[in-house]
Design a protein around this nucleic acid. Structure first.
Lengths: 340, 340
DNA sequence: CTGTTAGCGCCTTCAT
DNA sequence: ATGAAGGCGCTAACAG
C-alpha cells in the first residue's frame, strides 16, 4: 500500500494542504516546514497518486498520437524521443493506430474522446485526409497539432516539412548530374506531400528550361509494390536509349521497389540509372547501393509537434503555431552522372 | 462538461448505484430499469470517468511495454496489434524506451512504478539482460511478462520464439542446397537468441556429420555495421575457392550488412554466395534479391504477451505461463544451390 | 432487486 | 503562513 498525502502530513506534523503546497511548488511555506515535509516524503517514499490528481483537476495529463501504421518505418526510433518528452513533461503519451476514413477508426476516436479524455492530439498523415478528426476535436475544443497536414491554409496548428523545396533540391541534384529524362513517382492523392513533391520536381525542371513530360510522371502509392510496378512500366516501355536516366521516387519505400525492379531487369544503379527517394528511412542506407534521398527529420517533427501541443494544452501563449522544417539532401550511392 | 453518473441517474429516475450496476454488467437489475438507464446513458452521451474509477479501484488499468529502441524495425506495424488489444480490453498501453543497464532508464523505471503505477509490464530483450527490472517488479509484486528473455529457466512468465529450432532448420536448408562451408554471425552476448541460434546452427552441422569450424563463427552485433564488417573479414580472408559459400546472419539487419558487403566485393548473391538472416523484418522482402530468413512472428509474440499479462493482472488463472512460438522458414532469392 | 452511505487521494476555497 | 471542510466521479459495503 503506497503512502498517501495523509501519511506524509502525519509524519511531518502538518496538514495535508501544506504537503500539497510543497508538492506543487506553491508559495507561502516556511523553509523549515518545507524541509520537514520533504524529509517525510522521502522517508515514506511518497509519490502523488496520479488518478486522484487527474480526477480533481478534470484533466487526463495525457496526449494521444493518432498514427497511421506505416507512417514511418522505424517507428521505435521515432517514438523514443516523443515518449521521452512525455516523461519529462509529465504527460502520458499514447500511440493509437488510425486509418483515415475507416469506420472503426472513427468509432474508436469517438470512444477515445469520451473515455480517455486526452488533453490533446497529434495526427499524422493521411489521418487528416478527411476532416473528421479536426472537426470532431474542434467541436470538443480539444487542442490538435497536425503533422504534414493536407491543408496548410487552415488555422489548425501544424508542423510540416518543406516538401516542395526538398523535391526541388533533389531534382536539381539530378539535373546537375546531367540527367534530362527524369521520371517522378507521385504518391497517393490523400497526402499533401505527394502534390508538393511533384510540384517541386516540376518547378525545378521548368526553372532549367525543361518541358514537363506527363509520360514521365507515374501515379503510384508510397509503397514497395507501387514503386516496383511503376518502375517496371517505366523501364520496360522504352528502348535503353530512350528510357529515363533517373527515377525520383516520391518516397523511400517506393524507391526500394524501383531498385528491386532495376536489379531484376539487369539495369545497374547508378551506372545505367540513377534512383532517389524522399524521407530517409533508416534502412535507406542499408540498401545497395545506398539510397540518395531527402532527409525528412521525423523525430524533429514529432518533437516539435509534441512540445507545441503541450504548450497549447497548458493554455500557454505560443508564437509559432505553424512550423515548416527544412529537409536535407543525403547523397549516397544510388545517384551518379548520366551515362555518356 | 461531460455527463456524470449522477446525470444519468437523474434522467433514468434511479440511484447512481443502479447506473453503476448497469455500466459494470452486474446482475440484479430488472430489464426495464436497465433499459431506462441505457437510454439515459445514450441521451446524455455519458461515458464513465476513467480517473475516478481508477482512483477508487486502486488500479491504473494501464500496462507498460519496456521496449529497447530498435527491438523491431517496423515497430509501427508491430505496435498496432498490441494497441488494439489494449483498446479492446480497456487497458491503456504505454511504450517506454528502455536501455538495459542504463542508469537513466533504471531511474525512470522506479519513477514509473511509483507515479504511473502500471498494473503490469512487458519487457523486450535485452532489457532483461540485467535482472534489475525483474527484481524490482518482483519486489513490488507487479506482474511481468518477458519476451524472448535471456533466462528461460526462471519462473517469470514469458513468450519466446524457438530460436534453437529455427536456426537448425535454416542451417538444414543451406545444407540441403549443398553448402558445407557455412559461416554464422552470432549476435550480442546479452541476448539469449544469440546463443540459441548459434546452438541450432551448430547442432544442424553436427547432425550432418560436419565439424564445427570456429573460424566460421563471427562475433558481431545484430546491426548493419556488425554484419558488414564481419562479412568483409569473412569474404576477404579467403581465396574464392576457400571462402564460405553461405553466410547465415543471426538477424536480418546483420544480413543486410552482408548483402551490402557482397555487392561491394562484386560477389553475386545467390549465385556465388548464399545469404540468409533471422527475424523477417518487413524490409527483408524489399532488399535485393529478397532475403531468405526465419520468420519470427513478433506481432504474435507481443499479442500473446499482452494477453497473458492482462490475465495475470486480472488475477485470472492461466494454464500456460511460458510459451514457445515456432518460427517459419521464408524462402526468398538470397539462397541457392552451392556453386558447382 | 434497489438505494444509502462512506470513502479512494488530491486540490480548492475560505477561514484563521 | 497554515489548516479545515468540501467535493471531483465512482465503487464497495451494507441496508432495505
Amino acid at each position: 500500500m503506497p503512502a498517501t498525502i495523509k501519511d506524509v502530513a502525519r509524519l511531518a506534523g502538518c496538514s495535508i494542504k501544506t504537503v500539497s503546497r510543497v508538492i506543487n511548488g506553491e508559495p507561502y511555506v516556511t523553509p523549515d516546514l518545507q524541509a520537514r515535509v520533504l524529509a517525510a516524503i522521502r522517508d515514506c517514499g511518497y509519490t502523488p497518486n496520479i488518478s486522484a490528481r487527474r480526477l480533481v483537476k478534470q484533466q487526463s495529463y495525457s496526449l494521444c498520437v493518432l498514427m497511421y501504421p506505416g507512417f514511418y518505418q522505424d517507428a521505435s526510433a521515432v517514438l523514443s524521443p516523443i515518449m521521452d518528452i512525455g516523461y519529462e513533461e509529465n504527460y502520458d503519451i499514447f500511440i493509437q493506430p488510425y486509418y483515415s476514413s475507416h469506420a472503426r477508426s472513427r468509432t474508436k476516436l469517438v470512444t477515445l474522446i469520451g473515455e480517455r479524455r486526452f488533453d490533446g492530439y497529434v495526427v499524422t498523415p493521411p489521418c487528416d485526409a478527411d476532416d473528421f478528426v479536426a472537426d470532431l476535436l474542434t467541436t470538443y475544443k480539444i487542442p490538435l497539432v497536425q503533422i504534414n497536414p493536407f491543408n496548410t491554409n487552415e488555422k489548425i496548428p501544424f508542423v510540416a516539412g518543406n516538401d516542395d523545396h526538398g523535391a526541388y533540391l533533389m531534382t536539381e541534384h539530378l539535373l546537375e548530374l546531367g540527367h534530362r529524362r527524369i521520371a517522378f513517382l507521385m504518391g497517393p492523392r490523400n497526402m499533401r506531400t505527394s502534390f508538393d513533391r511533384l510540384h517541386g520536381y516540376q518547378a525545378a525542371l521548368q526553372a532549367h528550361g525543361l518541358e514537363n513530360n506527363p509520360a514521365l510522371v507515374a501515379n503510384t502509392e508510397f509503397t514497395f509494390d507501387g514503386g516496383y510496378t511503376a518502375a517496371r512500366l517505366l523501364l520496360g516501355g522504352y528502348t535503353p536509349a530512350e528510357r529515363p536516366t533517373a527515377i525520383f521516387a516520391g518516397n523511400d519505400e517506393a524507391a526500394y521497389g524501383v531498385l528491386f525492379a532495376a536489379q531484376e531487369l539487369g539495369i545497374v544503379v547508378p551506372q545505367q540509372l540513377s534512383v532517389c527517394g524522399y524521407d530517409d528511412f533508416t534502412v535507406s542506407k542499408f540498401i545497395w547501393p545506398g539510397l540518395t534521398t531527402m532527409h525528412q527529420p521525423v523525430e524533429h517533427l514529432l518533437d516539435l509537434a509534441a512540445r507545441l501541443l503541450i504548450h497549447l494544452v497548458k493554455g500557454e501563449s505560443v508564437s509559432e503555431r505553424q512550423m515548416i522544417v527544412q529537409p536535407q539532401l543525403v547523397l549516397r550511392g544510388s545517384t551518379a552522372a548520366v551515362p555518356a
